[in-house]
């Protein structure tokens, strides 16, 4: 006996197997992201007053990605409709669009990550804070005993304890494109302060107490930001692989069993729409609030 209802719906439940499978899977995904969103709420509500960042993320890029993802959700739907009406050419076109949009989304995300990666906060010896994007650093190469300037930082953090020496390179000074503020709290709400003077600031090694980039270790906002968007990006990646497979080698099934293939497109589409749904909440929660 073979497994029934692989492509036809079962009369009493009205769905075929894979559809119930994907919805069950999505239910568990809801709980997965639900756990993380709960964590977000808890961390945020529990944060000491004035210690939750606002306006740290680029709303323009976030909006762009929102629209890209919405568009890709639409093209997946159209790809499924194309299969439904038997127009395979249209299917190929729309799914190619989905793939291209997914990759664009990931590129934008990567750019945003990189932007945080090269953003440093330096705690100065006098208690002030320098903050900005990394421009360059001057080192002494202790082996050759000469100074040199580099445009990427060696390591992600610097602290007095480690002495600023890595692989025989001793830090002399760091230059940031940014500013110096009196209190770390002044860095929290970038929305409130509209006009901030930016410029090159060069800081001598002796002035640096602690230097750290905006990685997930920097504070809980960045931690949850990287975790949530990273997990979401993994979903995008996974979805792209599935969609790429169905668009490429997997399309052979169209010839053999078009109904089942159409179901596959529907099921993978449901997953894709779910990934879009997650983003619909991620965007306001992380970028706007």
């Amino acid at each position: 006996m073979e497994i029934p209802y692989t492509s036809k719906p079962r009369p009493d439940t009205g769905v075929y197997n894979a559809k119930i499978g994907i919805w069950l899977f999505l239910a568990s995904e809801v709980m997965l992201f639900g756990g993380l969103f709960s964590a977000y709420v808890l961390l945020r509500v529990g944060a000491a007053p004035g210690e939750w960042p606002h306006g740290w993320l680029n709303v323009g890029l976030g909006t762009l990605n929102t629209l890209i993802l919405a568009l890709s959700a639409i093209t997946t739907l159209l790809a499924w409709v194309a299969c439904k009406v038997g127009q395979f050419g249209k299917f190929k076109f729309f799914h190619a669009c989905t793939l291209a949009l997914a990759l664009t989304f990931l590129c934008v995300k990567m750019y945003e990550y990189h932007d945080k990666w090269i953003h440093y906060e330096i705690k100065l010896v006098d208690g002030k804070f320098a903050d900005g994007h990394f421009e360059g650093a001057v080192y002494v190469d202790k082996a050759a005993n000469k100074e040199l300037e580099e445009h990427s930082f060696r390591g992600m953090a610097f602290s007095e304890v480690s002495g600023g020496v890595t692989n025989n390179y001793e830090l002399v000074s760091v230059t940031l494109e940014g500013r110096i503020v009196a209190d770390e709290k002044d860095l929290m709400d970038l929305r409130a302060q509209k006009h901030i003077e930016h410029g090159k600031v060069t800081i001598e090694r002796s002035q640096i107490k602690h230097m750290e980039n905006y990685g997930p270790w920097h504070n809980t906002f960045l931690a949850i930001y990287f975790t949530l968007t990273g997990l979401h990006a993994l979903h995008i990646l996974g979805g792209s692989i599935v969609i790429g497979y169905l668009w490429g080698p997997g399309r052979k099934m169209w010839k053999k069993d078009p109904e089942r293939f159409t179901n596959r497109i529907e099921v993978s589409g449901l997953f894709w729409h779910f990934v879009d749904l997650v983003w619909i909440f991620l965007f306001p929660v992380l970028y706007l609030m």
Partner: peptide, 23 residues
């Protein structure tokens, strides 16, 4: 429905351990 929140927690603890976050 009950396991995924633990998976979320495991991911966060993983971040605490390898990415030095403070969840």
């Amino acid at each position: 429905l009950a396991f995924p929140p633990l998976e979320a927690a495991a991911v966060m603890q993983l971040m605490d351990n390898v990415a030095h976050t403070s969840f």
